[in-house]
Simulated scan of single mutants.
Amino acid sequence: MASAITLLFVYGTLKRGGRNYPRIADQEFVAEVATAARYRVVDLGPYPGLIRDAVNGLAVHGELFAVDARGLAELDEFEDVPNLFVRDLVEIPGYESVWAYYTNVPAPAGARTGDRWPLAGGSGRDS
């Protein structure tokens, strides 16, 4: 029986070329995509987090992967779900039922935000 496949949006260190890409490299890359303009990437220091922003949201740029059940379980563990991150639906125009990891901890006061990682102007240097 085939394993269930989940569409997963990644926007930080799991992207191709990012330092944690090897954790998702065995899964199927689907496309470079952008979310609906309802989100932001927030700088959490060595990595980003995704947050919802219904008022001033941006179209966050990232990548879409088709992930099998084993890969998703491993990524959930790596992302420390449900402590550090939570996995929930994200709106990607042209796709249905896409999931992403949202930060589940408060962003540091004055944390920078943007539409892609690494953020423009420094910090988040490891893509």
Rank of each mutant, 00 (worst) to 15 (best):
Pro106Cys: 06
Trp117Lys: 01
Asn56Ile: 04
Pro93Cys: 09
Leu84Asn: 08
Asn104Lys: 00
Val105Tyr: 02
Asn56Asp: 14
Arg70Phe: 09
Pro118Cys: 07
Leu89Ser: 10
His61Leu: 13
Leu72Arg: 15
Pro108His: 11
Thr103Glu: 02
Asn104Tyr: 01
Val86Arg: 15
Asn83Pro: 00
Leu84Pro: 00
Val55Ile: 14
Ala66Phe: 11
Glu79Ser: 05
Val90Cys: 05
Glu96Met: 09
Val86Ala: 06
Gly122Asp: 05
Leu64Asp: 00
Pro106Met: 01
Gly110Ile: 07
Arg70Cys: 05
Glu63Asn: 06
Ala69Cys: 06
Ala73Gln: 15
Phe85Arg: 10
Arg87Trp: 04
Phe65His: 14
Pro106Arg: 00
His61Pro: 00
Gly124His: 00
His61Met: 11
Asn56Glu: 15
Val81Phe: 03
Glu77Phe: 05
Glu74Thr: 12
Ala69Ile: 12
Ala111Gly: 00
Asp68Phe: 08
Glu74Tyr: 02
Leu89Asp: 03
Glu91Thr: 11
Gly114Glu: 09
Glu63Gly: 01
Arg70Met: 09
Arg52Met: 10
Pro108Gly: 08
Leu89His: 13
Gly110Cys: 07
Val90Pro: 05
Ala109Gly: 01
Trp117Ala: 03
Asn56Lys: 14
Ser123Cys: 07
Asp80Leu: 09
Asn56Gly: 09
Glu91Gly: 02
Ala69Trp: 05
Glu74Arg: 15
Tyr95Ile: 05
Arg87Asp: 10
Val105Lys: 09
Arg116Asp: 04
Leu58Pro: 04
Leu64Phe: 07
Tyr95Pro: 00
Glu63Trp: 12
Gly94Asn: 07
Val90Arg: 14
Pro106Ser: 13
Glu91Lys: 14
Leu64Trp: 04
Pro118Lys: 11
Arg116Ile: 03
Trp117Leu: 08
Gly62Leu: 13
Val98Ala: 09
Gly114Ala: 02
Ala59Cys: 12
Asp80Ile: 08
Glu63Pro: 00
Ser97Thr: 13
Phe85Gly: 04
Pro93Leu: 12
Asp53Gln: 10
Asn83Cys: 06
Asp115His: 05
Phe78Glu: 07
Gly57Asp: 11
Gly122Asn: 07
Glu77Arg: 15
Asn104Thr: 11
Leu58Asn: 05
Leu84Trp: 11
Tyr101His: 08
Val98Thr: 08
Gly114Phe: 06
Ala59Trp: 08
Ala69Val: 11
Leu84Gln: 11
Ala109Arg: 15
Arg52Ala: 13
Tyr102Val: 08
Phe65Trp: 13
Tyr95Gln: 10
Asn104Glu: 12
Thr103Phe: 03
Leu119Asp: 06
Asp76Gly: 05
Asp53Arg: 14
Phe78Gln: 11
Ser97His: 15
Gly124Met: 05
Val55His: 10
Val81Ala: 09
Gly121Arg: 00
Gly94Arg: 00
Gly114Met: 02
Leu89Tyr: 07
Leu119Met: 02
Tyr101Arg: 10
Arg112Asn: 03
Thr113Cys: 06
Phe78Gly: 03
His61Thr: 12
Val67Lys: 14
Glu63Thr: 08
Pro82Ser: 10
Ala73Ser: 15
Trp117Tyr: 07
Phe78Ala: 12
Ala111Arg: 02
Glu79Gly: 05
Asp88Glu: 15
Gly94Ala: 02
Ala109Ile: 11
Glu91Met: 03
Trp117Gly: 03
